[in-house]
Amino acid sequence: MKFYCLLLFSAIPTFSFSQKPKTENVVVVVLDGLRWQEVFAGADSALINRPAFTKSKAKIDKKFWDNDFKVRREKLFPFLWKTVAKQGQMYGNRYLQNFADVSNPFQMTYPGFSEILTGYADPAISSNRLVTSKSQNVLEFINKQKGYEGKVAVFATSDLFPALMDRDNSKVYINADSDSLAFGSAEFRLLNEMQRLTSKPTTERPDLLTYFAAREYVKAFQPKVLFLALGETDAFAHDGNYDQYLHTAYAQDKMISELWNLIQSIPQYKNKTTLLITCDHGRGDIIKNQWTSHGPQIKDSGQVWIAAMGPDTKPQGIFIEKGRYYLAQLATTTAALLGFDFKPETHQAMTPIFSIFRK
């Protein structure tokens, strides 16, 4: 354990690329609180068979259950397993001693998103309170690079992102929670009305509308970096609603699939875009009743997973080498995919996950 941490936390004054990455665009998708257990093993029978958590067992069994875990996970995440796993890489399968974790001690949504974007565990972000982050983040960094000015966009269900991105001082386009979805079209005026009327598990807008907004923005403006954060898996898990947690995870997989198909139909993106998918924190599992929760008091809720696919990523499937990876590495990895060396202003940088973009 100490050996891995020493390697990952060691400072990197600079690093060079053996060859220029083929990636010209990056799409990062974060699925709030989606457990690695479902990603790698599919629907959890221990939760399906508890009436307190699953109200429609027969329907869930029919749609998501199979005795073979490989079939189960493919039923739940068809795009992730039929496309991403076959063409890219999957990290965090703890059954194979491949670990992915948060580096922050709080194991909550805001600290997790902050870690993904700043490249370190910011001690000032210790809860989900709307504290404005003053740390440099990788999206702002990329947006300052030549050719990327005004080409970075964030779409999020969570109301945390205006604070996380320090929107008052940000040059990045940020659309989150209750922000208007209208870009001047009748379709988006309709979406705004849908947002007002649609029932949802929290006061935040539905993931579907966040996805629609991101999709239409891609069509209209073709950003080079897109950060998409969806949140309903976490909300339904907190409600103890395993039925809807699974249905939402399945729907999120479909959204990512449709977004990827759109990207591959646009010349700017086709075969020049890397897709990164992850979550901001895990959930309880050792004590099954704790699957609804996360935080420093729940030991296994710091466990996460990472998936990658793109022109620089070897199609390896599940990464089976023993090792440990951290969400904080995604900041330097995102920059490195575009040929940039991102280093947090006040903290040592974690190395990128080099295997994602070095064939």
Rank of each mutant, 00 (worst) to 15 (best):
K200H: 15
K224T: 04
I142M: 02
T23P: 02
E345C: 04
G42K: 11
P206T: 10
Q222Y: 06
A251N: 10
N192E: 15
Y245T: 14
S127W: 12
F342I: 05
R215K: 15
L337W: 03
N261V: 01
Y269C: 01
D101W: 11
R72N: 05
S185I: 02
F53K: 04
L259E: 06
F227G: 05
Q297G: 07
P21Y: 14
V30W: 04
F155H: 14
A153H: 01
Q89L: 12
G310P: 05
A308E: 03
R196L: 14
Q222A: 14
W81N: 09
D61Q: 13
P162C: 10
P123F: 01
A331G: 03
S10K: 13
L31D: 08
M165K: 10
E216G: 04
F227S: 04
L164Q: 01
K82P: 04
V102R: 01
D243V: 07
F227I: 08
L181Q: 10
F15R: 05
A153Q: 00
R196N: 14
T248Q: 00
C279S: 15
V218P: 03
A235P: 04
N192F: 07
K146E: 11
T333L: 03
K63T: 15
D44G: 06
L164D: 00
P311S: 00
P21W: 11
Q290R: 08
I256V: 15
M90H: 09
D207G: 10
R129E: 14
Q348F: 13
E74A: 00
Y325L: 09
T157L: 02
F188L: 08
L190C: 07
Y242F: 14
Q97T: 08
F212A: 12
I287N: 09
A349K: 08
L276M: 00
S127H: 10
H281M: 12
T202M: 09
N261Q: 08
E115N: 04
K322W: 11
L191W: 09
P162F: 12
N25C: 10
F155P: 08
G240D: 12
L117Y: 08
K62D: 05
R283V: 04
C5Q: 14
A331R: 00
Q268T: 11
F212G: 00
K55H: 15
Y110T: 12
G284F: 09
A307V: 12
I116Y: 10
V225S: 06
A41N: 14
M90T: 09
A331Q: 02
A308F: 05
N143R: 11
V29T: 13
I12L: 13
T333P: 02
S185M: 02
D122L: 10
I318M: 09
S293I: 08
G184Q: 09
A186V: 15
S133T: 13
W291F: 14
N289Q: 09
C279K: 07
V84M: 03
L6G: 07
F99M: 10
F106H: 15
L337V: 03
I318N: 11
V131S: 06
S170A: 03
N169M: 02
S185N: 01
I266R: 06
E38G: 01
L160M: 10
K224I: 02
G184S: 13
A182W: 05
Q303S: 15
L76H: 12
Y250V: 02
V29H: 05
N192L: 07
K82T: 12
T198H: 02
K55Y: 11
I263C: 00
P315Y: 00
K70L: 13
K20L: 08
K151Y: 06
G88N: 04
Q316L: 13
D239L: 15
F342G: 02
V39H: 00
A214K: 02
